[in-house]
Amino acid sequence: MNHTAAAIELDALTKSYGPKIGIDRLDVTVERGEVFGFLGPNGAGKTTTIRCLVGLLRPTSGRVSVLGMDPVADHRRLGPRLGYLPGELRLYPELTGRQTLGLLGDLQGAPNPRRDELCERLGLLPADLARPVREYSRGMKQKLGLVQAFQHEPDVLVLDEPSEGLDPLVQESFFGLLAETAADGRTVLLSSHVLPEVQRTCGRVAIVRGGRLVTVQAVAELRETRARRVRLVLADALGPRPLGRAEAWSPAWNGTELRLLVPPQEVADGLRELLATLPVVDLSVEEAGLDEAFLDLYRSPEQNVETFS
């Protein structure tokens, strides 16, 4: 085992199912102690990548390394140091919550020092744990999934849609757990559709689309490099008219109001031009939300593949 290695390394990782390519030459590095987001639209290859990471799928080509180990070949050594929450959590319906945690703890073969504390923090009461899982709501199953992933204090946590089904109070507890995990120097890879959650918890994100990596960037950097939302109020109500190069900035007209998404490096010049040609009576410039930044990356098919890791 390589103790100086990054926590997670994907090197030209490819997984295909016959002629269909699930993920294509993915290169991602996650450093130890990082909370890393893994994003993309449905069918982008997130779950396939995660399953390769935890050793459930064998890569067709390329390399996966977690804590310097191969998740398939070194499964026995890596398993005790790995915590995993699947995207679609399936449990044995007839087992109680307590039996489920006991079974998974037994298979882990390691002490579970935090089990009771985690149950309490996530609101799993002893009465809940005594009930069969088939009686659980989606949120309760998700809490159980989080406890089993965290209970043995793993060095690397791989969480697929972890806050799905959690109420806001439990989400807060979960964010607290994530923060403590990162503060302890442990690593979290988190796949999510909930962008505010990513914005709040992750330092960096990778975005995949169609099985390919679109970008790996710091969340703050991603936001900075994305478009600015410019709103102009005009003196007349003549509506759409030629805008010159601003035509490329997704103009949206609404009466006297014009909205544009302007690349950050063009904001100053662009505004000067618009102010010179249009009867502007009011204007505002806002940083585009992270949602828009992500959605922009999700959508644009001509986006170049970039890696900053």
């Binding site: 459930l56 398993g79 005790p80 399936r90 449990l91 298979l107 882990q108 073969g109």
Partner: peptide, 14 residues
């Protein structure tokens, strides 16, 4: 088929 294999086999179970 049931998906429970995911939770079993990410543990140190050969």
């Amino acid at each position: 088929e049931g998906g429970t294999i995911e939770l079993l086999m990410v543990r140190p179970v050969t």
